[in-house]
């Protein structure tokens, strides 16, 4: 399998299209014939990241790379950045508005769930610049 890469631009506050990138990612992985367990983990992590970009960021991108050993998701945004990453990683901590909560999000589960879905997770955030997340899911025999 050659390396494959897809880029998706994500707009701030675009709730109408929120989830389209993750839906495309899921279809791509299905077409590649990957195992349903890893597809699910990638789809959920990508969707949580996509929703975070729509809800919290000034816009950004989701990039997916697939190589013979792993699936990597890059979620990068243009700010505003997270003040306290350690606190943001805590289950239940959220800065989401009531409007977001009414939509069923903002429970403070996004980042912890992304970490849970990944074999390797890294997050770096710089105030006013942006947040940069890398999630790796390693392919095992049978995936």
């Amino acid at each position: 399998m050659d390396n494959i890469r897809y880029d998706f631009e994500i707009e701030k506050d675009d709730f109408e299209r929120a989830g389209e990138a993750s839906s495309s990612i899921k279809k791509i992985l299905r077409q590649l014939g990957l195992n349903s367990g890893i597809i699910r983990r990638v789809a959920i992590a990508a969707y949580e990241a996509e929703m975070n970009l729509v809800i919290h960021s000034n816009g950004g991108s989701i990039v997916i790379e697939i190589d013979p050993r792993k699936v990597t998701i890059f979620a990068n945004d243009k700010g505003p950045g997270i003040k306290d990453v350690k606190l943001a990683m805590k289950e239940g901590y959220s800065t989401a508005s009531d409007r977001i909560r009414e939509m069923g999000f903002g429970a403070g589960m996004g980042l912890p769930n992304m970490k849970k879905c990944s074999d390797d997770f890294s997050i770096k955030s710089i105030l006013k610049e942006g947040t940069f997340i890398v999630m790796k899911m390693f392919l095992k025999d049978g995936d």
Binding site: G19, S22, S23, Y47, M103, G104, F105
Partner: peptide
């Protein structure tokens, strides 16, 4: 009891 499109997107991702 939630009826927005994100319910379907969430369902799609979580199988």
């Amino acid at each position: 009891g939630l009826t927005n499109p994100q319910v379907i997107r969430t369902a799609e991702m979580a199988d």
